[in-house]
Design a protein around this nucleic acid. Sequence first.
DNA 1: CTGTTAGCGCGTTCAG
DNA 2: CTGAACGCGCTAACAG
Lengths: 329, 329
Amino acid sequence: MSSIKDVAKHAGVAISTVSKVLNGYPNVSEDTKKRVNDAIRELNYVPNTIAAALSSKQTGRFAILINLNTQTQAIDEINMQYLSGAMNKARELKLDVITIFYSMLQDKSLDEIIVYLKSQSIAGIIIYQMSKDDTVLKELIDSQEFKIVVVDSYIVNENTSSVWVDQARAQYDVAKKAIEGSDVHNILYIAGKENGFVTEERIKGIKQLAKDLKLDLRIEKGEFSELQARNITMQYGKDYDVIVCASDLMAIGAMNALTEMDVYHPVCGFDGITLMGYVGKQMHTVKQNFSHVSGEAVNELRELLSGGVGRNVVLDYELVRLKYEDIIC
Amino acid sequence: MSSIKDVAKHAGVAISTVSKVLNGYPNVSEDTKKRVNDAIRELNYVPNTIAAALSSKQTGRFAILINLNTQTQAIDEINMQYLSGAMNKARELKLDVITIFYSMLQDKSLDEIIVYLKSQSIAGIIIYQMSKDDTVLKELIDSQEFKIVVVDSYIVNENTSSVWVDQARAQYDVAKKAIEGSDVHNILYIAGKENGFVTEERIKGIKQLAKDLKLDLRIEKGEFSELQARNITMQYGKDYDVIVCASDLMAIGAMNALTEMDVYHPVCGFDGITLMGYVGKQMHTVKQNFSHVSGEAVNELRELLSGGVGRNVVLDYELVRLKYEDIIC
DNA sequence: CTGTTAGCGCGTTCAG
DNA sequence: CTGAACGCGCTAACAG
């Protein structure tokens, strides 16, 4: 492994000069800049991230915080897209990433978590799938010890940005598509988790739709659980012309209930997970571009890391929508 | 953040002494050891991984190399289990992990990859889902620049270990369960990818079963593709009493084909992905404990990193089998 | 048994 | 515009 020292020697300049061209500092003549760059290329040199992190203290190292222990593995797909989206963008921006699971922070105090992250020279964090029940995370954010970007949740302070897509609009849109062409007078909406940010946003969306189309609307909380959606549908399903769910899994539960009751109504899900293609029923859903959202989160984090102040970033829904799908199998 | 210097001062000893108790070196009196530990606790001190890595050169930093760009997202579930299994074990062994996707190494030469990894102070790599087509990875292994553990594939050299479960036995076992109680005289086996290690092992297993039970056996390569499995089943399915597939996805394809042809034969998959529970058909499968396998891989990597020599580790199938399932929906 | 010293690879003043 | 010198937090000989 060639180090910065080798490059300096090879280019016939001082180490600090190499460092300057590496980090795009001014006050380096075009001539030496070129010599240095040539040396870098010839030696196949890549700066040692670790050493840079140690030295600079103002690193581009950040952690991706992913929640794994949720009800079902169906969301692995979403997590993976978050992961790869963030990592690709990180590479593009030359940031350093490490992956952390919620489970690794469990039964740790706030202090321990902070110390752990600092010991890793972590400067920023991107948090996915956060719910209001994650009190330690909330404290972590409030502590403002790190630059943080929260995806699909709304918390903003000096050092914290939120990045989310317009869930209300998305819900409005997909539900509208789902009922297109049917004679619909009322909607059964099965919402997500109590206190969930996306849950509330989506409820706004469906309420707006009901209002615009002058439809009756019943809202039940389904906790993102397939079983609960099933039970709710069993109870109310046959009285409503369409069932709109805040997740695909719940849509599957609802559809199964309908099938069992031998009634047919359109069912609409949310997220567009692969599973939807395998249940053998026709349903509607939206597929979000999670990789893209995640990339935007990294962008925002970089802003924060380079001195930006926390803010609320609402991604245009059009940008993250992959496609509507009528999924049939 | 308190550093080792603070601890030394607080305990009234030299920095190196702190380092020694930290790393469990001998030649430190019980008395000072205690004083140091007290200071560590009081200051809430955690060693800086980054600095340690820089200094020691003999790091416990390793990379998890995951393949994402495969045919279907159904394997996200498996990847996630690999990931979390490895990370948890890494934490247990106090090793440092970073996650890398195959896609991040694409269109990179061997040299570039090596340099990149070295620039991250990476000493070891765990490779999942490797196929024989990944020539650059093969070169990476041959270069012996890193300690490497290959999961579910067989490559061993001085610095490379293989960790795999007894796929032959697993395939034998699950297929046997699948045909239990049926009057079976022949088997259609839909295998995985040409040249794949697990593919070949599983074929051994099914051959053994056919031999033991004196059954006719037809083997077709399905490339782990649902569609190919479907086509193969269309062609040969009705002539065979049972269809055994090397993956769940292929089992689904096969089952769909049978349904379309309106014939019923038992179908047997492999891996036990969640999807299996949603297709509404009864099938057999084995669920492997991928997290555990991944943890074992980390164990083996640690062996290598601490001077061990590459070897072949065959995990007892019993240890990694989660359960047999007759999946019905 | 303990303290001193010299780096690891790099960023960053501050004189030239 | 350039380079010597120091330090980041830690490990590893080497003295004492």
